[in-house]
């Protein structure tokens, strides 16, 4: 056997085997769903109770008004021409979809319940994923996840590149041009404002208060608590009503758990979808591949060292004259 081919094959197959073994070692979605007792806060949204009064929407807008963008106009000219201005500052009153000035809205769906057309309403906002792609893949660290599992975007650091929206399975973050750090860097060539989304009223939670939308709801649609408790409660409600759960395993698990009396496929078919109108589709864990490749990275140095050691031993055994080795 040609020793060159043998060693190369060893190196190649070692790395491939390490990658392959690691790729099957950590099942992303299941692993996350099984390990949820890490002190993360989650919200249960019991859709049955929502009457669509929008008290939560108003409370959200009021509580977070100081965080809303105050863009500088005229906007700097941006290049190339495909970079479009995203300006919601003249449409601040829009409350029927997600915008930089509206982080929570009520979604409407008309579905059949017991054979009758029934209108169902549900509050929609950021799902606050357990392993949020918007946070993990932000190239500048401007999106962050807090110790309690809630994610938010720092408006002082965000450049508005919209990658967070691009990688979000629900396209949640919304951009406002003419505000933020990019104005002080190269506004013509890089960045385009700041991305905005629900931050779960992190400042209120830090003060020991509940998020504004939860406090304002007259029907107690939302409940906040430790994720394990919330999931247990969601399943208890679902069992009681013969209902359905959404958000527990979506994208590897989120901190927003919906319970519905009708299947989410039916709701998803009935709601408006598109930019600013998040869907209710099943969602695979967007970070699962990264977790699996990370395991392969642990194996790769072992494979490299093993290949070098094999080569060294083979070279040495060749260098030793025949019969020089002591026979046992």
């Amino acid at each position: 056997m040609n020793p060159l081919i043998s060693r190369r094959m060893f190196l190649k197959s070692g790395i491939a085997a390490a990658a392959g073994a690691a790729a099957t070692a950590v099942p992303g979605t299941q692993a996350l769903a099984a390990n949820d007792d890490r002190g993360y806060l989650a919200t249960l949204i019991d859709i049955r109770k929502c009457i669509g009064c929008e008290a939560c929407v108003e409370a959200c807008r009021e509580a977070n008004a100081p965080k809303f963008p105050a863009p500088v106009k005229p906007f700097p000219k941006m290049y190339p021409s495909r970079v479009k201005v995203s300006d919601w500052s003249e449409k601040r009153d829009v409350s029927n979809r997600l915008t930089p000035y509206n982080w929570l809205f009520i979604q409407h769906a008309t579905v059949k319940v017991n054979g009758e057309d029934t209108e169902i309403t549900l509050p929609r906002r950021c799902m606050h994923c357990v392993n949020p792609p918007c946070v993990k893949l932000c190239p500048w660290g401007s999106a962050m996840q807090m110790e309690n599992g809630l994610s938010r975007i720092d408006p002082d650091i965000c450049l508005g590149g919209s990658k967070c929206k691009n990688v979000c399975p629900w396209d949640i973050p919304q951009r406002q041009t003419g505000v933020g750090l990019y104005l002080k860097l190269l506004p013509a060539l890089a960045g385009n404002g700041v991305m905005y989304k629900c931050d779960r009223c992190y400042d209120r939670i830090a003060r020991g208060e509940r998020p504004a939308c939860i406090d304002a709801c007259p029907e107690d649609v939302q409940t906040i608590g430790p994720r394990q408790d919330i999931i247990a409660r969601a399943h208890a409600v679902a069992k009681e009503i013969g209902g359905y759960v959404y958000g527990e395993i979506e994208n590897g698990g989120t901190n927003t758990i919906y319970v519905s009396p009708v299947p989410f496929e039916d709701l998803n078919r009935a709601i408006a979808k598109g930019d600013g109108f998040p869907h209710l589709n099943p969602v695979q864990d967007a970070m699962a591949d990264a977790n699996n490749f990370a395991a392969a990275m642990v194996m790769a140095p072992v494979a490299g060292i093993a290949a070098a050691a094999v080569r060294f031993l083979k070279t040495r055994s060749k260098a030793e004259p025949p019969g020089s080795r002591r026979e046992g």
Binding site: L11, G14, I15, A300, A303, G304, I305, A308, A309, F312
Partner: peptide
């Protein structure tokens, strides 16, 4: 993954 394998192979 490949770079780590290569770097450790070459270094050792």
């Amino acid at each position: 993954v490949i770079l780590l394998g290569l770097v450790f192979y070459v270094a050792f």
